[in-house]
Structures are given as C-alpha cells and as structure tokens.
Design a binder for these strands. Sequence first.
DNA 1: CGTCTTTGACCTGCGC
DNA 2: GCGCAGGTCAAAGACG
Length: 306
Amino acid sequence: MESTNMLGTCLDFDLNINPIHQNDETSERELEEDHSVDEEAKVSDEKQKVLVEELNRVSDENKKLAGMLTMMCEKYNALQNLLMDLKSKRPEKEADVMLVRKRKFNFDDNNNVVGLDQNNDSSSSDEDSCKMPKQSIKKKVSRVFVRADKSDKTLIVKDGYQWRKYGQKVTKDNPSPRAYFKCSFAPSCSVKKKVQRSAEDPSVVIATYEGKHNHLNPSQSKISLVTSPLLKTSSSPGSVCTNSSGSNLTLNKIENDSIKHVQEFQAPPMQRVLVERMASSLTSDPSFTAEIAAAISGRILDQTRV
DNA sequence: CGTCTTTGACCTGCGC
DNA sequence: GCGCAGGTCAAAGACG
C-alpha cells in the first residue's frame, strides 16, 4: 500500500499487529485513513515540538551569550580599574622608561647610528633586529585574513601602512608564494608583514604582522577624524586609539566601521556603553583582534567549504 | 632619476 | 656535518 509506505516504520508496525481483519476492505480503508490522518498530525506535532525545542535551545544560548558578554564587560572594567590603579601607583617609573626610550629613539632617528639600542624592544631599527639574536626578539605576531580575488596575484593587503617588499619565497606547505614586506613609512619601524594566500582557500590572503609600529599610521588622521566622536568617549589611556601604535589597521578599520554601524542602530545608552567598551577592548589588543579575525575567517572558510 | 618590485643568491636555524 | 626550509639581501629592471 502506498499510504503505509509513506508513513514509515511506525505505521507498518501498527498495520501488521492486527491481521484478523485483512479481508474486510472497508474497515481496512477506514483504518488506513484514520491512521494516515493521525500520523500526519503526529508528524506535524513532532515537527512543531522539534522547532519549539530548537527555539528554546537558541534562546537559551542567546541568554548564555548575553551573560558571557556582561561578564566580559565586568571583567574588563575590573581589569581597567586595576590597570589605572597600577599606573597611578607607578607614574615616575614609567615616565623614566618613556624618557629613556624617547632619548634613544631621537638619537637613532637623527644620527642614524646603529647598535646603540640593541636592548630596546620591537621599536628598534631594522639593522638592530638583523644583528640581534632572533631568540631574544619577542615580537607581537598577529594574523589577518583578507578575502581577495583569486585572479589577483598581487599579494597586497591594503592596511593603511606603507610597505616595501623585500622578498618573495615559495614555501613547502603552500604552492602560492609568500611575500615579505617591511614598514617603509618610518626608517626606525621594524614591523614586518608576511602575505600569503591560504593553501586551503586561494581566495583568502593571510597577512602575518610581526612587531609593533612606532609611528602614526599614514591614514590614521583620516580615520580618527571619522571615528573620533565615538572613540573619544570610549578610548582609555593606553588604548590603540590614543597611542596609535596598533599593528593592524585593517582590523581597526573594520572595527571602527562596524562600531559606527552598530552605534547608528543602537540608541539605548547601556548598549551604547557596552559597544564602546567592547570596541575599546578590541582595539586595544591587536592579538585579540587577530584571534577574532582568525576565528571569523575560519568560520567563513568552513561554511564556504560545505 | 628616484622609488619600488622582482628574483637569484646567501644566511641561519633546525632536524637528522 | 649535511641538507632542507624559511628568511633576508641586494643587484637589476620596471615604472612614473
């Protein structure tokens, strides 16, 4: 029978348990009709149940995420307060360090003398970084995933900074070449960038940033003009917005743009404060932004692969 | 002519 | 010590 086949194993089971009325055609037909109506109702009920469960699960998840966000904000506030306390307790020490750094920096800039600030951090010059043992250099490394046209073979990631290409190499694990860039905006800036297409998805370009810029972003002024009304309220001392030493403008740009959009849509002050705080926390930590970008890109890659 | 890109050679770290 | 792979240098060419 067609109807029994359509209704699956449960119905087959029901029909087979009562073989006594097999010759009674009318009663069988009535029975089948009843069964089919019942089963249709059952199926729709089950579907409804599944949907309701899914809805509940999603709303629970949403609640959990909201809770996590609130917790993150609270923790961020606590950390911010802690940082402010620490800064207020040790202002002289930091000022001394800054003074020494500035002095060394000026000397290096003006006289172009190499080798005097070898113990300096990532803001030392290229020559220094070449002479120093690689193990002693602790540079901040961040990765940015950028969607690019497959046909576009120029490994250029526009991030607002000025880069000079100094090498290209084909690596073992990836058929597409890897390009090496140095920041050419400031001679003393030791930030390097490696750009390579993803082996898994050639439409994705992976830019790896090493080090921290010790100068303003060439296009920073333009960006800060656009976003200053928002960031002025959100940025705290020490954030990227104020020290402008973020290593990743692409992300900053994306974040700032998205922040603008978010602010346009979210009028309630509480949400606005939350968004601003989140934005501040995101922009103040390049590694965190890189991790977020990596996670998002990975997610996108996963979805495009399916 | 100055700047930027390309590309082969060289250097360095690491595993065997 | 050797080979491999990644990273860097620097000469040559392209381009505005």
